[in-house]
Amino acid sequence: MPIVLIVAEQQPDGNLRKATLNAISAGKQLAEKAGGELHIALVGKDPAKVADELKGYGAKAVHLGAAAELEHYLAETYAPAIAALAQELKADYIGMASTAQGKDLLPRVAGRLRAAMATDVMAINGSGADITFTRPMWAGNVFADVKLTTPVKVLTLRATEFPAAAGGQGAAEVKTFSPKVEASKTKFVDFKEVKSARPELTEARVVISGGRGTKGDFKEIEGLADDLGAAVGASRAVCDAGWVPNDLQVGQTGKVVAPALYIAAGISGAIQHLAGMKSSKTIVAINKDPEAPIFQVADYGMVADLFKVLPELRAELAKLK
């Protein structure tokens, strides 16, 4: 029976990354289509912290590998642990959310197993041995259906394209294992977290993004975001200029988001930005330039100065409350 192994991810605070839940539901879908079963793996210093949560998502088993050497994430120490578990389980598919960690780690796991890999999988098609994956190429300008022909197949799963798995679906068996620990030629030095009281960009229901039109002044964007409990995003130009932290960049090479509402203020809409947000359910564009490409994907467009519109918008939205 085909085995689908989904690798879970903990945040620095030990809690589960929300994108893991989307990867689990994709894994469940894949297991159903392949006629197999879903397993979940987590390695680290303290994977047991999220054991209770992980066992409620309908997997056959949850495999937890704890080791002191795995305190700080490194691809070189996590890959041998995951690859050895996958071999022991005879996993046919190994998947993980398309987070920075997923994209760093899974190719190294795939390399170890000489497995072909599809990055940023958006859809799982077919059934049995004829499963194919849809993934974006050329910054989302092309969707490709690909087939992986190696015995083990590795995937990263784009969180915005799969629903978050719902808990309370019975209790999976929780198994602990001793992860394979190898010496690493890389050592962790430090992690500087960008702390924000706002929701994580890829998990927010509403995202307000600013572009070059802000000239670096994000006050009104942040104000509107706080009014709506929204996350703040930015175009590449804004991050390149150092006006906002890099991890706010929305785009094919930054974060891919798909919130219920995306408001683009002063963003022209370069192809690579559009690739990162055009799956949003409702898109609002505010730009002075009526020819800006962002209007081609916007449900509601306003040709106006964002510094005039945003304060008005905040006042008008306040009236709804």
Partner: peptide, 29 residues
């Protein structure tokens, strides 16, 4: 070991509208 079976254009978003002012935008949203 990767076969690209088919490429397709991503589905186009349906054409949106321009709104004249902020109250009209909020009404739509």
């Amino acid at each position: 070991a990767i076969q690209v079976l088919k490429m397709s254009a991503p589905p186009a978003r349906k054409a949106g509208i321009k709104v004249a002012d902020v109250p009209a935008l909020v009404e739509k949203l």
